[in-house]
Amino acid sequence: MDIVKEVLAKQAKDLEKYKTINVEKHEEVKVDLGHLMISDPNNFDENALRDNVEQYLLNLTRENVQLLVNGIWELQTERLDEHIVAKLPKASFALPRARKLPQPKVPTKWEQFAKAKGIKKRQKDKKVWDEELGKWVATYGFQRFKAEKEKDWVLEVPQNLDPMTDMFQKKKDLKSERVAKNEIARMKNIARAQKVQVPRAGFVSEESASAKDLHVAATIAKSSTASVGKFQEKLPKEKDARGIGVRELIPGSKRKRTIDPSQEKSQQIEVVQRILNKRPKIDVDKAVQIQKREAREEREKNPIEKKRTGSKSKHAKKFSSKKPKGAMGNRKPKKGGAGRKRR
């Protein structure tokens, strides 16, 4: 009997040493085996927590870890190289993201435009049938380049050009211009996406620039005189280029003209004065009317007017158109008169 008691006592002692694997909780804890995570929704026992914080937290942690381990042991296990391995299920808890969300890519200028206009990207065929060559030709890439070369074995010089123009070179130049223009657009897109201020590139050339670019260029060129283009002639209905940043490019027009509100009135009165002054001071119509009336009245007063007849008066002198001269150095005292007639 003693032995039995002894054994039982020993076992009880052992059991005391190893804490129980059964943990009781008011509310069931959430076990997420995928993350090997456990979350305990139960409240702390405040009295126990106040008595001995460390001990209480240690116990609580142990209990929860015990639950987690219990959970693991419930899974299907297998033996692999002397180790017992359990296969964890899929995680159910949604962990918050460690890093911030990636920003959406800034759309390029073309993408913005296409969206505004509702232009959708079309999938092009990789190869198209070329009537001239009579075969399928790639839409892009080196095969396309080859086909192009094959096609353009001769190029026509347009009539309006110099007959010695190298059309092959011209075609090449145009292509490189387009490439350059696209490169600028690409750089501009990058700069805009990173919000970097870049100086204006101007326009590539007359042939690949847009009408707007040319208009701006013409306006700038026109105002690039000593008098800021004030005396440059304008075409009928010609307008200066407008838009964002255009004004800054035109020399001398950076500052916006401001009108002092107190000066507005005086300026307008000045304009009115100028308009009024422009009118003829003599009212011709009125003058003619007065003249006519006077003439009429005079006519009515003396209805019969004598007509002047007969010879001219005796004293009328004869003038010749020639300048009167003296006696050319010869004195003729008899004739009278004293030298040249002075007027």
């Binding site: 009135k265 009165i269 304009v271 009115v272 004065q273 308009i275 009024l276």
Partner: peptide, 21 residues
């Protein structure tokens, strides 16, 4: 301004100034 006052002076002449002042 010029076009407007030119028209107005055709009707009221110098009296335009009275409207402004």
């Amino acid at each position: 301004t010029k076009i407007f006052f030119e028209k107005l002076t055709k009707y009221i002449g110098t009296n335009v100034k009275l409207l402004l002042d």
